[in-house]
Design a protein around this nucleic acid. Structure first.
Length: 530
RNA sequence: GCCCCUAUCGUCUAACGGUUAGGACGCCACCCUUUCAAGGUGGAAACAGGAGUUCGAUUCUCCUUAGGGGCACCA
């Protein structure tokens, strides 16, 4: 059995740096130091001990989503890693639209991707929108390119024409499934001579192009996180590369594009690891240098399944609508599979870019913990200057005037975890919240005593207007003079004015309502008591 | 069915053969306090199991178990 060596990654500096640059050595086991698990598999250097990263070629990463619908939070996670790694090395971050599946294409999806990236601040250097020297960046616009390489592979004899109908393939699969065998193409058309195949094509027969996968080989994939992963070629299907509609499949397109676009590091989800040997084969057939491959763990639902709509909130839009701040979301996401060297939890994205390294990523799929995200978002909200916070708050408080939002900002920033919560906590500002009279009878107060408190509070407001400092003094005096319970007094006032027991500090909230409305609400409360 | 990946508190993670296994979210208690928060202090909470290797394994190897991913003319 022949062993196919793991293809080498792009040019590297020779000598000692090699290992530290790539974080692994191809096919050489590394004794001694290194992340234990990894060193046994391929010899990682220790992230903490590693030398400076030295690249003698520009780092270029790509985010390559399919425009099939909404932007998934996992998309943002992946794009963030791409962006951070590229920027850390002063390299390029490329957006490529993988729209080779006509059936699944959704028109608005591409626009959503641009918006999502913009919101998150992960703006690509090259994209269909921005252009760039390696375009077009939409795969549907690169058809001739794929066809050209498909032709080359035909000429080299590394691929073959296949005329099997989808129906036959389906039946084949069913049969294999029934026999509990590996579902795999039976290579029927591999026997057809090139001449015959070309004749049949001339006759107008529909065909696809499949790659010839060699027998009895071990195909090694070098993954930056997992070291060398070896696959049996016998278990790999003769993958379709060019579909009957002339579009490439992912496997052809991704290899051709990553090479032509000079992508140095392919960062993609772990679901691609199984098809990586196919790509290794294609790089070999095309005689191209293999980029660095890294398969990152997918985000998980609390039940550990791949994060999906069924269980939680996966759409970026949901997070935006809830009022999560982009910097909070990125900070949270950066802590999935990675940790700050000083164990910090809160740090800027710039810090992350500086400290992040692909090699330090954990191969384990992290559960997305919304509670922690909420906490972190709260931290970011609290840390924002009031004037800045106002801008973020405005869309969530369409009925509240800007100056009132500014007044409210310091009162609510310690009480909300998402911007959306502001609308609930400030509900009393724009409307009289209805409540039951019982609510005014705090801790066994009688109607009379509660009424007395409100009468005197009203008199104070009437006299001093909404002057926070004066009211503060006056209310405390009233409490002392009348020998009231401090908590009770403020709670009665709070309920009367806001209609609920949970509000920002009550005196400071009065300016949000104004004198006239405050008096009117106190009157309403008094009438509820009589 | 087959292939591949993975395994530290409930969750996110630190640990690179020798630690009272550290931090964060969440949870509980107390303090502060006009409610709620925020803040402060403290607490409960983990090395999946079994064999090796070693003077010594959370850490290295193997097996088991469990979880995840993949096996399309989808990406």
């Amino acid at each position: 059995m022949k062993l196919t060596p793991a293809p080498e990654s792009p040019t590297f500096q020779h000598g000692d740096e090699w290992q530290s640059v790539w974080g692994f050595r191809c096919g050489v086991s590394s004794p001694g130091k290194g992340k234990p698990r990894a060193s046994a598999r391929g010899g990682f250097t220790s992230p903490r001990n590693r030398k400076k990263d030295l690249f003698d070629f520009p780092v270029r990463t790509r985010f390559a989503p399919s425009p099939t619908g909404f932007v998934h939070i996992g998309n943002i996670y992946g794009a963030m890693l791409d962006y951070a790694f590229a920027k850390k090395h002063k390299g390029g971050f490329i957006l490529r639209i993988e729209d080779t599946d006509q059936k699944r294409r959704v028109d608005e999806a591409e626009e959503k991707i641009y918006q999502g990236l913009k919101w998150a601040g992960l703006v690509p250097d090259e994209s269909p929108e921005h252009g760039g020297k390696y375009g077009p960046y939409r795969q549907s616009e690169r058809l001739e390119i794929y066809q050209k390489y498909a032709r080359q592979l035909v000429d080299q004899g590394d691929v073959y024409y296949c005329f099997c109908t989808p129906k036959r393939l389906e039946e084949l699969r069913q049969e294999q499934k029934r026999k509990k065998r590996l579902p795999k193409y039976d290579r029927l058309c591999r026997k057809i001579s090139k001449k015959e195949a070309e004749q049949r094509i001339k006759n107008g027969e529909k065909y696809v192009i499949r790659m010839k996968v060699p027998d009895n080989e071990k195909i090694a994939v070098n993954d930056l996180l997992r070291g060398k992963v070896v696959f049996e070629s016998n278990l790999i299907d003769d993958q379709v590369l060019l579909k009957a509609d002339g579009f490439p499949t992912y496997h052809l397109a991704v290899v051709v594009d990553d090479h032509l676009m000079k992508i140095s590091h392919i960062i993609r989800g772990e679901e691609w690891l199984s098809s990586a040997p196919k790509h290794v084969l294609l790089y070999r057939y095309l005689n191209w240098q293999m980029p660095v491959l890294i398969h990152t763990a997918n985000l998980r639902n609390p039940d550990r399944s791949k994060m999906s709509k069924r269980h939680g909130h996966t759409s970026l839009d949901w997070y935006i609508d809830q009022g999560f701040l982009p910097e909070a979301l990125l900070n949270f996401l950066s802590l999935l599979g990675w940790s700050h060297p000083e164990e910090k939890e809160i740090f800027s994205f710039d810090q992350f870019v500086k400290l992040f390294d692909l090699k330090d990523l954990s191969p384990v799929g992290p559960v997305f913990d919304l509670k922690k995200l909420e906490w972190m978002n709260g931290v970011y909200i609290r840390n924002k200057a009031d004037a800045d916070l106002v801008e973020f708050l405005k869309p969530f408080l369409p009925e509240v005037a800007k100056d009132k939002i500014l007044t409210a900002a310091p009162l609510i920033k310690e009480r909300i975890k998402t911007l959306k919560e502001a609308s609930e906590i400030l509900e009393f500002v724009t409307r009289k919240v209805d409540y039951s009279p019982d609510l005014l009878l705090v801790k066994g107060l009688t109607k009379e005593s509660a009424g007395q408190m409100l009468e005197k509070a009203k008199a104070a407001v009437d006299k001093y207007g909404i002057d926070v400092e004066k009211l503060q003094k006056e209310f405390l005096k009233l409490i002392k003079d009348n020998n009231w319970n401090t908590g009770n007094f403020f709670m009665v006032l709070r309920t009367a004015v806001c209609g609920k027991k949970i509000t920002p500090p009550i005196i400071e909230s009065l300016p949000l309502i104004g004198k006239g409305e405050t008096l009117s609400r106190l009157d309403l409360a008094l009438s509820k008591l009589s």
